[in-house]
Amino acid sequence: MEENSNDKIMKEILTKASSEMPFPDFEDELMSKINELEVEEKAVQEGYRRGVAFSWVFFIVGIIIGVVLTQLIPQLKIPVQGVDSEVVQLIFQVGFILFILLHFEKLMTMTRGGLFKTKNQV
């Protein structure tokens, strides 16, 4: 008997709890907004991949230019006021090595972040 009354109460609650859509095409608009967000996310991911690829290209170009300059600096004998050309070469080489190490680590992090990111991660 109690179960019957509980069932009746539950049915009343459920009938009163039904929600109405705010306007007739609410579901269609919501689905189109979700679709637009997915398309935008794909475009952002593609732009990110393209940016990382360009970063690698310019990183390699920078390394090539740096190696060429490292070889040319001793031959140019650039006179710097009161500084020996070997010191200039040493300063350039240290800066070049720091540039390579710092940017290589950042590029590896960016590449790993883009390649191993799954579809379920936001």
Rank of each mutant, 00 (worst) to 15 (best):
V68T: 01
I91H: 01
S55Q: 14
V83L: 13
G62K: 04
Q81C: 09
G82N: 11
L72W: 06
G82V: 06
I64F: 06
W56Y: 08
F59G: 08
Q89V: 13
I65F: 07
I78Y: 01
P79N: 12
I60R: 00
V57I: 15
K77M: 11
W56V: 04
G62D: 11
P74Q: 04
G82W: 01
G66C: 02
F54K: 14
V57K: 12
G62C: 10
Q81Y: 11
V88E: 06
V61F: 07
V88M: 08
F54S: 15
I64G: 02
V83W: 09
P79F: 07
V80W: 01
T70H: 01
L76Y: 01
F54N: 15
V88P: 08
I73Y: 02
W56R: 07
W56T: 08
L72V: 06
E86F: 12
F59R: 10
G62T: 09
V57P: 11
I73N: 06
V87N: 10
V61I: 13
Q81V: 13
V68M: 01
I65Y: 06
G82Y: 04
I64N: 01
Q75H: 05
I91M: 00
I60Y: 03
V61L: 09
V87F: 10
G62M: 07
A53V: 15
V83R: 13
L69I: 04
V52I: 05
T70K: 03
I60L: 00
L72M: 04
Q75N: 10
V80N: 02
F58N: 11
A53K: 14
G82K: 04
V87H: 10
S55R: 13
V80S: 09
L90V: 09
V67R: 04
V52P: 02
I91V: 11
Q89H: 13
Q81D: 06
L76V: 05
T70S: 10
F59Y: 12
F54Q: 15
Q81G: 14
G62P: 07
Q71D: 09
V61E: 03
I91N: 06
L90M: 10
V67M: 05
L69D: 07
W56K: 07
I65D: 10
S55F: 14
G62V: 02
F59N: 06
V87P: 01
Q75D: 10
G62Y: 02
P79V: 09
L90E: 11
I91W: 01
G66E: 07
F54P: 11
T70P: 02
F58G: 10
T70W: 04
S55W: 14
E86D: 14
E86R: 12
E86K: 13
I65V: 13
V67W: 01
V83K: 10
Q81I: 06
G62W: 03
L90G: 09
P79A: 11
V61K: 03
V52R: 04
I65W: 04
D84P: 00
V57W: 10
I64M: 05
S85N: 15
G82C: 08
